[in-house]
Every structure is written in C-alpha cells, then in structure tokens.
Design a protein around this nucleic acid. Structure first.
Length: 484
DNA sequence: AAAAAAG
C-alpha cells in the first residue's frame, strides 16, 4: 500500500492528513493524484466510499501553491448543499496547515457570511450551481481566475437537470485550466459529453479486477413488498443485530416525512432530510445523524450521493430507486472505506420492472424479487426478519474487472462509483480504510475503450459487455491516446 | 415523474 507521503504531496498536506489518522492512500488516490498534481485533466471513477474527494482535492490544494494570493483560484461544484458542506470540510482540513482558505457557497443560507469570506480572499470555492451563478451574476464571485475546476458527482452535474447551469459556469472560468470530473458512475454518453469541457482527459478507473460492478463490501437484499407491512419489516431490520446507523431512502419528500413520524412513534431516533425542509433543519438532521444523536436518517435522493457518515451499517430502500446509478449511490452510503454494509430494497408491485432493470445492469442475477424467505436462511439469520416475510439475498456478482483505460479516447464504461471521503475523516475508524479510499480513485486510464461511439446504453455501470470490451481492447494500464 | 438547485 502506498502512503500519501510517497505520492509527491507537500509535507504540510501529508501532516494535515496524518493528524486525522490518514496515512495510506486508497487506489483511486494513488492513481489520480500523480496525474492531477502536474495538471492532467482527469475523469476519475471509483466505487462509492473509496476516497475520490482526496483524489481531486489534494492536487487542487497543492497546485495553488503554499501561499496563494487572495481571490478564487479553484472551483468545486457539487449537486447538493449537504455535499457542499462535506467537501468544504474535507478541503478545509487539507488546507489546515497553509494560508489557503476555503468557502462553501450554496443556497438556503444567508448571503452575508459567504460574501464576506469571498471578500476576505478565499481561494477555494465549493458550491452548488444556483448560488454560484447567483453570486457570479451579482459580481460578488469572480471565477475568471479559477484555473482549477472540479465537478464532483460529475455524471449528475452533466445530467439534464444541471447541464444548463454547468455550461453557464464553464463560460465564467478560464479556457486554459485544469479540469477534473469524479464520480462512481460515468455512463458512456456522459463521458463523451464531458470531453467538451476538458482537454485530453484521462479516464481513470480504480476497480478491483475480481470485483463486480457493485461494492464487494455491501450485501444486497431484495424484497417483494406487496403483501408485506413495510413499516413493520423496516422496524425489525432496524432492530437486527449489528445495526448501527441506518439510512432509509424514499421516493418522495412526503413519504420521507411520513416515515420519520411513523418510526418516531415506534420509538426510533429518526431524522429526516429532504428538499421541503428548511436548510437549517436539513443541516440539523445531518449533524445529529453524524454525531449519533439520531441513528436513523430518512431521506430522499438528496442524500443518495456522496454523503459520508461513519458507522452506517444499513441502507434501506423503502422505495426502489429509478435506475441502477441511483441504486449504486444510495447503497454506497454504507460499506465505505473498507467497512461492510447491508442494502435492503423493497420492490412494490408497480416497480418490478425497475428491479429487473437494476438487476440486469448490476448483474445481480436475481430477476425476480419473489423468493420466499425460507429459501434464504441467511437472510433470516442476519436480519431477524419476521417469519413469512418474502425476500432474497442477492449476491453481488463478480464481474470481470475492468482494467485501466485511458479515457481520453472516450472510454465508455460506466462503472464507477464514487469513493467516499468520509473515511478519511474518521481517521481512526478504519485504519486501512482511509488509506484505501484515498487511493482508490485513479483509474486506469485507458486503453482505448470503445466509447467513442457512445453506443452503450447502460449508463452507469458497465454492463458485462463493456467490460469485456475493455478488457480485450484494453491494455491494462497503459494509457492510450485519446480517441477523438 | 420525482428530486435537486436561487429566491
């Protein structure tokens, strides 16, 4: 295992990490940091909870120099306010031993503090699109010298809901810059689109060849939900042995609110996070959950990506997500930094097709969530699910591991997940983990994959074919020239 | 279709 000190990172940054107990680099970090430091544009893909944030964050901090002039020189864009706070904290930690200052710019909060920090000369900005554009339009945020640009959860940022804003933001930053895009999932078409904003990017993927598309540390369980009292089963799961913190995802804000009340009535310490809450209430919930004052978080997909909380042992999909990418990100709130986790999904009558889609994309080999409980003794044992409940243990498939490819060519695969940053934060919780996470991101660049065509339908995670292709074509490791 | 993101 490689340590951060061996990656050419400035001593004060190595010290900042060490003070949090973070010494070893995760694969993605080991792979992307040496490329990011000299300014190589990167599309970094690595599974959830494996350290992507430091993969881009360390090069950003180091490239600004040990004592940067006042003024915004780096911009990190994220899809949610809570993630902005989290990434801000990570960047703030990385810069703790140098004068560089970081500011979080996002909506739902007073302008004043944010504007003051910008006026004070903050060099690194972490923010969500709306408020960033708002302040830029008011000439309170000058991005014309932001030569370091990062899109975290990049595939989400380039999705329809955000694309227009991102394009606008790119018109405000220098044409000559260092651009990094990171995510656990990078569908082929999105990679192709991303290249419009990058210069000869290398697509790095940190994947264990023996692993499948999903995180090996996460055990997946799927239940057919009709004829089943979901609230009751969820309550049982929450009482199962080994459960520490749990995140429950619902499809709508209303369902989240309703469930938090229901579980509260049942005596659980549950908090909710969704877009109908005030920003203050959202942050209060997140803080209570991180601190352990609440051990159940009920959320909409606002919390599906990036959020890194220690000791989350269970993720429960009260409602199945719409696609495999969201499934992967939601499940990725557990099993971070080397820890293990369990992801339980309830499939309602009308959503069976969604499971079919996810099952196929992620290669679970579990077409129907209809097996009865008796056929899955492990399920019963592990979760203490009430007898008669239907459900089935899904074993994560082992897919062929993708090899490194260079994406400049336009690789296609969509596999990645993101790596979590949290581990690092924790510092101590899982020693090895921190290191791992950090290193994980870099990917393999690629051997040229075929993506140029963009034909792949699967987006997020690579389907088996993709992998094969890569493999075949690919060189593992050796970067190929970018495909035009 | 829902959720997110400016107010």
């Amino acid at each position: 295992m490689t340590t951060f000190a061996e990656l050419g990172i400035d001593q004060d940054i190595v010290d900042a990490l060490a003070s949090k107990g973070i010494v070893d680099a995760f694969p993605i970090q080991e792979q992307t940091i040496p490329l990011g430091l000299p300014g190589q544009d990167i599309i970094g893909q690595a599974k959830t909870g494996t350290g992507k944030t430091f993969g881009f964050g360390i090069p950003v901090v180091q490239r600004l120099g040990p004592n940067p002039e006042p003024g915004v020189k780096a911009l990190i864009v994220v899809p949610t306010r809570e993630l902005a706070v989290q990434v801000y904290e990570d960047m703030d930690m990385l810069t703790s031993n140098r004068p560089t200052s970081v500011v979080a710019i996002y909506g739902g909060k007073a302008y004043e503090g944010q504007i003051d920090q910008l006026k004070a000369g903050a060099q690194i900005v972490v923010g969500t699109p709306g408020r960033l554009i708002d302040l830029a339009n008011q000439r309170l945020l000058d991005l014309s010298h932001a030569t370091e640009v990062v899109l975290d959860e990049a595939d989400k940022m380039l999705d329809l809901g955000f694309l227009a804003d991102i394009e606008k933001i790119f018109t405000k930053v220098p044409a000559v810059r260092h651009t990094q895009l990171f995510s656990a999932t990078m569908p082929g078409p999105i990679v192709a689109l991303a290249r419009r904003f990058m210069s000869n990017p290398i697509h790095m993927r940190a994947n264990d060849p023996d692993e499948g598309l999903t995180q090996a540390n996460i055990k997946h369980l799927v239940y057919r939900a009709h004829s089943l009292d979901k609230d009751e089963v969820i309550a049982r799961i929450l009482q199962s042995e080994g459960r520490e913190k749990a995140v429950i995802f619902t499809r709508t804000k209303r369902a989240a609110q309703k469930l938090v009340d229901e579980l509260g009535d049942r005596g659980f310490n549950a908090a909710a996070v969704h877009g109908d809450m005030s920003q203050e209430a959202r942050e209060r919930s997140m803080a209570a959950f991180k601190a352990g004052k609440k051990d159940v978080l009920i959320a909409t997909d606002v919390a599906a990506r990036g959020i890194d909380v220690n000791d989350v042992t269970h993720v429960i999909n009260h409602t199945i997500p719409d696609d495999e990418k969201t499934y992967l990100h939601r499940a990725g709130r557990t099993g971070r930094a080397g820890n293990t986790g369990i992801a339980v999904t309830f499939v309602d009558w009308d959503d069976v097709h969604k499971w079919a889609l996810i099952n196929r994309a992620l290669e679970f080999g579990q077409p129907e969530p209809t097996e009865t409980y008796s056929s899955s003794p492990h399920l019963y044992t592990d979760l203490n699910i009430p007898e008669g409940t239907k459900g089935r243990l899904v074993t994560a498939p082992k897919a062929v591991a993708p090899k490194p490819e260079r994406s400049s060519e336009g690789s296609t695969d969509a596999e990645g997940e993101r790596t979590p940053r949290r581990r690092r934060r924790r510092g101590g919780s899982t020693p090895g983990a921190a290191g791992e996470a950090a290193g994980a991101e870099r990917g393999e660049a690629g051997a040229g994959t075929h993506d140029g065509a963009g034909k792949e339908h699967h987006d997020g995670n690579a389907a088996p074919r993709r992998r094969r292709r890569r493999r075949s074509g690919g060189s593992s490791g050796a970067p190929t020239a970018p495909v035009a």
